[in-house]
Write a protein that binds this DNA or RNA. Sequence first.
RNA 1: CGGAGCGUAGCGCAGUUGGCUAGCGCACUUGUAUGGGGUACAAGAGGUCGUGAGUUCAAGUCUCACCGCUCCGACCA
Length: 426
Amino acid sequence: MKWSKYFIPTLKETPIGTEAVSHQLSLRAGLVHMLTSGVYSYLPLGLRVLKRIEDIIREEMNAVGANELFLPCLHPLDLWKETGRDKVLADVMIKFEDNRKRPMCLGPTHEEVITNLVKDFVQSYRQLPVVLYQIQTKFRDELRTRFGIVRACEFIMKDAYSFDRDQEGLQKNYDLMYGAYKNVFKRCGLETVILEADSGAMGGDVSHEFMVPASIGEDTIVSCSACGLQAGATEERAEGTSCPKCKKGKLTAQVAIELGHIFQLGTKYSKAQGAQFLDENGKQQSIIMGCYGIGVSRVIAAIIEKHNDANGIIWPREVAPFDVEILPIQGSKEDGEIKGLTEQYYADLTAGGLDVLVDDREESAGRKFNDADLIVIPIRITIGKRNLAEGKVEIKLRETNEVILVEKDQVAKKIAEMTRPVCATN
RNA sequence: CGGAGCGUAGCGCAGUUGGCUAGCGCACUUGUAUGGGGUACAAGAGGUCGUGAGUUCAAGUCUCACCGCUCCGACCA
């Protein structure tokens, strides 16, 4: 991809009204654009990151036997009345009437829709278990948006739903999802703290939250210095208090971003909506359900919060919008060799399966370097006269700021060596 | 929804006790030079000062209402 033909609107200065680093950098690096509070457009670069995260999620979901589908975000309100959640979620639901005066809402979550779907197709225990997921836009009329895309009114979520004949089956799928979630966040370069949590408006008995401790966030985790207990702190029992478990250690509080939440729902929805199956004894049973969410767009914010420096974002390799950036330093004088090498590297690396961005703009070297640091592609190749005089080209790794000089005809080979371990994990 | 702050060009800002044609930096356009860390010079283009009322000879500036954004709180799969 050539920069001159790509839409990467970087900002030199920090936008007003932004506090969180991820909010600032996501705007400055040209990833997103705010339409109004809590409503964001994803620009080409941000969309690339989003797609890469989605791909990781898809791989991990498919690996545990979940099937991807795509549910509507336009829901008749009547459906929500079946479970009474039209009232429970009334504050966050975006409701309206269509032109035929039918009460509708934009889906804040999809338990009702998926249950409605599954009950039409599943009649027998022989058809269970079923695990389905989607990556979809959710709409929530948040009372207060926060930190850019961390809490938005319109956001992208992966939601999976499991349907089992018994608790044993649910537990099995729940454990699989639990493991898949750990993989997803690890591959996104995020260390998570997993907490047993309150099920809230979702209902059910067991639930776990996947939290990333960060300098901003809407949740608080308390940790015990002695026994290592970690727990959510919804109430004002943060610091000071002694540990409720060992009674010895002191609790320290840490702000965190919730990225994932998984629930054992049981029969709350299947009973309310009549999703039943016939067991081998010919008896009607309610399907046992679980649901599993990841705030996909929120993951981007968490990654930026955890991976940045004074110059910009340091993407973990698996989620970076491009693998390699080629930065030719040349002017209008047309240095034939620089141009030739740029094209050659681009062709070689692209053929090797890498996403390559070429900064072919007629800009000063300084601006190119600064933009490169801001949007940050993991590997940067700088081609300039200074090193070319020695027959060499510079390769810089953004993660470590390590700079190596490579013979100009060894570049593609060297990059291939560097990127191989990443490819192997895929 | 309570508390606080902010709103002047695409972005970041200045604008005094109300005063004459609303400025500055960046970005943008054109030209010349430059070409390894936001390059220099020159000439340009770009404005319902968030919206609406009010006070006044005169409002970016004062008053009121409303709208929008951010932060804290309440709330939250």
